[in-house]
C-alpha cells in the first residue's frame, strides 16, 4: 500500500500538484493497481530477455537532411503566446524570489 507521503513524492517527481483530498484517493487507487501487477512475481523470468520492440527492427537510421516541414507563420500560429519584435515569442513572466 502506498502511503500518502509516497504519493506526494511521486506527484512531485511527475510535476503534478494534488489537492488535499486527492492524495488519499490516489493512494488507494494506485495501490490497487500496483498490487494487481504483483502477480508478475510468480513468473520465472530467469534468462528471459526483456522486449521493448516487437517487430525486431534495430538501429533504424536515415540521412541527416534538412527538410522544410511547415511554414514559420503556421508554427507561430499554433501557440497563443504573444508574438513581438519580428516573430519572437514572449514567454510568461515568472518572478523568482
Amino acid at each position: 500500500m502506498l502511503s500518502d507521503k509516497e504519493v506526494q513524492h511521486i506527484a512531485k517527481l511527475a510535476r503534478l500538484g494534488l489537492k488535499e483530498g486527492e492524495v488519499s484517493k490516489f493512494a488507494k487507487q494506485l495501490s490497487e493497481i500496483l498490487e494487481y501487477t504483483e502477480q508478475l512475481n510468480e513468473v520465472d523470468t530467469e534468462n528471459i530477455e526483456p522486449t521493448s520492440q516487437v517487430t525486431g527492427l534495430e538501429n533504424v537510421s536515415r540521412e541527416d537532411k534538412v527538410e522544410r516541414f511547415c511554414e514559420k507563420d503556421e508554427l507561430l500560429a499554433c501557440t497563443e503566446l504573444p508574438i513581438e519584435r519580428d516573430q519572437i515569442l514572449t514567454k510568461p513572466v515568472i518572478t523568482e524570489n
Partner: peptide, 10 residues
Amino acid sequence: KAQKVRTLII
C-alpha cells in the same frame, strides 16, 4: 520484469 514477461507472451 514486465518487459521480460512481455517476451514470454510474444
